[in-house]
Lab assay of single mutants.
Amino acid sequence: MAAGGDHGSPDSYRSPLASRYASPEMCFVFSDRYKFRTWRQLWLWLAEAEQTLGLPITDEQIQEMKSNLENIDFKMAAEEEKRLRHDVMAHVHTFGHCCPKAAGIIHLGATSCYVGDNTDLIILRNALDLLLPKLARVISRLADFAKERASLPTLGFTHFQPAQLTTVGKRCCLWIQDLCMDLQNLKRVRDDLRFRGVKGTTGTQASFLQLFEGDDHKVEQLDKMVTEKAGFKRAFIITGQTYTRKVDIEVLSVLASLGASVHKICTDIRLLANLKEMEEPFEKQQIGSSAMPYKRNPMRSERCCSLARHLMTLVMDPLQTASVQWFERTLDDSANRRICLAEAFLTADTILNTLQNISEGLVVYPKVIERRIRQELPFMATENIIMAMVKAGGSRQDCHEKIRVLSQQAASVVKQEGGDNDLIERIQVDAYFSPIHSQLDHLLDPSSFTGRASQQVQRFLEEEVYPLLKPYESVMKVKAELCL
């Protein structure tokens, strides 16, 4: 049975990233139509530049190519590739079939990587351009969430054990800070992308030097003109047959890092959902379990974690691919890159769409948070109580021993009897502590235990987050809708 299948058929496997999760716009960027249309555009740009620099290419040939950029006979191309065992030459023939007058000058002087690699770089750039505003929107939604809850005390956790208090907004800023680093890295790697350009079979530009009869300047002009037509500021000066596969490492490393950030955020949300302090959106008709109707599973956060793990592992592909590119190139890269580049971007696209949807509907339960604080705060307040007693004339050592005994009794009630923490009640009825009984409410005010959390939130948002989001103001209103 021949390899390949009808990918629109229910009898043929289709990647869930495309069929179930990723956005239509990201799927289109990695589609065959987008790819092969870009090949034709690159052939047109090459012909236009070659004509401008004096090669015998007519206006009629150029116009014929322009008129057929979208006229792609995919069936013919597939048949040609089956016959020739070469995808680029299959599309040269297919393009030439609908451009008979231009057929002889299509791909003039070029090698397969002229269309293959340059198209990949265009796709990487455009895919990054799709991700950047999506990530900015996630940051914006979380920034709104953090600002609104900047002063809401909550129990902090280290080692997932109760620690000092923080605020809900401050905790959210930990998430935002990681995503801001990801946004900066995505922008950097996007701006650092260079075009492969017009380089020939081993990167020496020998074929173009021959076409222009040894004119170095025209060869350099050709490279520059096509690079500018493709919208790049610069091209690699040095290439082998391909652009260095280190570029793929750079791009997928940034995406993998984004995956790590999203995994951490969504894990926190899942843990908070278990504590009943916070939940992701839950639709009115949504079913959490087929057997347990009360369940409210954090399905979206779980999906993000599941896909983020996949995204983090994909960076190993370009690392290994770059390491086995012998001399000017081997074909070890080809099949692998067809999979890992598309999957990385479709996965990143999915987790950003999902995280935006989550961040637009996060639900906080202040009463649950308050109750958990009441359970733990008495123990945390013991040092403040000791200091207040010393100020009232008591002995630190005597007070410490009193607190120690009462704390152990209260802990026994919590752990052995399943009761509430009654340390404060014990202190309130103990005559030894009568000098500070009137101060206990103040000493137990949760806001006095959150330090500068709310001020940190305000400063972080104003100095770091809002300036970073400013270039994306025009796209901030787009909502994230999930079908599944």
Rank of each mutant, 00 (worst) to 15 (best):
V168W: 03
T347V: 07
L183P: 03
S31G: 05
S290K: 01
E81M: 02
A291W: 11
L406D: 08
P318W: 09
D32L: 12
E473R: 14
R83A: 10
K101Y: 02
M65D: 04
Q408G: 07
P133E: 14
T227A: 06
R372C: 01
A230F: 00
V364H: 14
C340P: 00
E425S: 12
C304R: 03
R329N: 06
R194G: 12
R452F: 12
F145H: 06
N118A: 04
G419Q: 09
T58N: 05
V364K: 02
L484E: 13
G203K: 02
S19R: 01
A480D: 14
I249K: 02
L271N: 00
T347Y: 04
V363T: 01
V324W: 03
Y472I: 15
A381Y: 13
A342F: 15
T382M: 13
D73Q: 02
L42E: 04
R37D: 09
K470F: 07
G200K: 00
S438W: 15
K284P: 07
C305N: 05
L255C: 14
F236T: 04
G54H: 10
S448L: 14
H7Y: 13
T267E: 06
I176D: 04
N336I: 12
C266L: 07
M387I: 10
R426V: 04
L346K: 07
M316C: 10
A273T: 06
P378L: 04
I403V: 07
N185I: 09
R329S: 01
L255I: 04
R194W: 03
G197Q: 01
G8M: 12
S257G: 13
L271Q: 05
R37N: 02
I424V: 13
T202L: 06
H86M: 02
G104L: 09
A480R: 06
Y432I: 05
H93P: 02
F195E: 05
K35R: 09
R459C: 11
Q456N: 07
I385S: 08
A453S: 14
S290N: 04
Q210W: 00
W175M: 02
K229L: 06
H217N: 10
V168I: 07
T313P: 11
A235Q: 14
C98D: 12
K101G: 09
T201C: 15
A127M: 01
S112D: 00
E425G: 10
Q164E: 03
L444C: 00
P281A: 15
D59V: 09
D332W: 04
V226E: 03
T154V: 08
R33W: 14
K75V: 07
I122L: 09
V168H: 09
D441P: 15
A163V: 02
C180G: 09
D32N: 09
S290L: 03
V368I: 06
D398C: 05
R296F: 12
S67M: 10
P467A: 13
I176E: 07
D223K: 03
Q356A: 13
Q221G: 13
R196Y: 13
S438Y: 08
D191Y: 15
V478L: 11
V390M: 11
R194L: 11
V168E: 06
I139S: 07
G394T: 06
L443Y: 03
R190H: 09
P133H: 11
V88M: 14
K101F: 15
Q221K: 10
L42K: 03
A348H: 01
A150H: 12
I238W: 02
L258K: 05
D223G: 07
F95A: 12
F157V: 03
D117T: 00
V414C: 00
Q320H: 07
I176H: 02
L222F: 14
Q456S: 10
D422W: 15
K367N: 15
Q184M: 08
R83D: 14
L258M: 07
D216Y: 08
S359T: 00
A47R: 02
G54A: 10
E50S: 10
R396M: 01
L468R: 11
R188G: 09
S12F: 12
Q397P: 05
A3C: 14
D87I: 04
E473A: 14
E64I: 05
M278D: 03
F449I: 03
K391N: 08
S151I: 10
K66P: 04
L423G: 03
S306M: 03
L258E: 03
D32I: 07
T94Y: 15
T244S: 15
D215A: 12
C172A: 09
T158G: 02
M380Y: 02
V262K: 06
H263V: 06
V405T: 15
K246S: 04
P446G: 05
N357A: 12
G54V: 02
F327A: 10
L275D: 09
S412N: 15
W326H: 15
E81Q: 09
F36V: 12
M76I: 05
L275N: 03
A49M: 06
